[in-house]
Design a protein around this nucleic acid. Sequence first.
DNA 1: CTTGACTCTCACGCCAATGTGAGGGTCCAA
DNA 2: TTGGACCCTCACATTGGCGTGAGAGTCAAG
Lengths: 139, 139
Amino acid sequence: MCVRIGELSRLTGVSVRSLRYYEEQGLLDPVRLPSGYREYDEGHVSTVRGIRLMLAAGLNTATIAELLPCMTDDGQALSPNCSGMLPDLHRERARLTEAVTDLLAARDALDTLIATTRTLDPPDPQACQALARPNAVRP
Amino acid sequence: MCVRIGELSRLTGVSVRSLRYYEEQGLLDPVRLPSGYREYDEGHVSTVRGIRLMLAAGLNTATIAELLPCMTDDGQALSPNCSGMLPDLHRERARLTEAVTDLLAARDALDTLIATTRTLDPPDPQACQALARPNAVRP
DNA sequence: CTTGACTCTCACGCCAATGTGAGGGTCCAA
DNA sequence: TTGGACCCTCACATTGGCGTGAGAGTCAAG
């Protein structure tokens, strides 16, 4: 299987621009034809899927670049291939957990606002001038 | 209580630059002395804390600017002052929930990677070139 | 009055991933 | 051979929260 960048883009749903960017960041290295065209194979499809997964997890390209060499293509996706990357993975996991904690804390704050608002439910909604002025701040 | 920006920065642990930025974004409006100096009070301290909480939760300043006018300072937490914001609050709550879901999904993906790595535990650790690079983890 | 700490307002820089567009080659089918 | 689809390489723009520095004013202590 030999595809050029446009086809790989279609296969993966990732923009051509992003594919070139991943290459620039050392995440992909397609074969170059004499014309300068990039040529990819099935392995690259899996790699791109792995990249997207990790990006979605909030990892940056530098981290992904470290992890990729440790992964092998099992035909469907990438799976890790060496245990040395475990500390990195755990670190990233901790980061995600912390992010979740932050979000939940903020959501709790929102919930408090919502609950209190419901119980107060002021008889004079007009009292909140801010409703008329989108950008207004504390009066 | 009357503090200027440097002291507020010390009280909140937020940089002077950030405090000015929050003002620029409509999140704070300190009194201005004739000299042009900003002057803050205790209420601003709580406001800044609220801002940091929401920023940490991934809300942007525009959203925070919408929420802030509906809060009053009760010393520790912030409580709502108008019910007109309820739909917005619910919308933000939903967004936060979705963000949490996404992060958890990403974390699950990471967990899968971690679990697979553990079980594979390759017989040839040297195969992972990443381990030899400066930024690599545990030698 | 001087000095030094503090403050002010611009205004440019940075990061990260990606969009966008210019200007120009390549390939293939009609 | 031509035209249109595809590809190339720059290179600048974007978004948001903030760092940083220049040039200048303010203020209180010595």
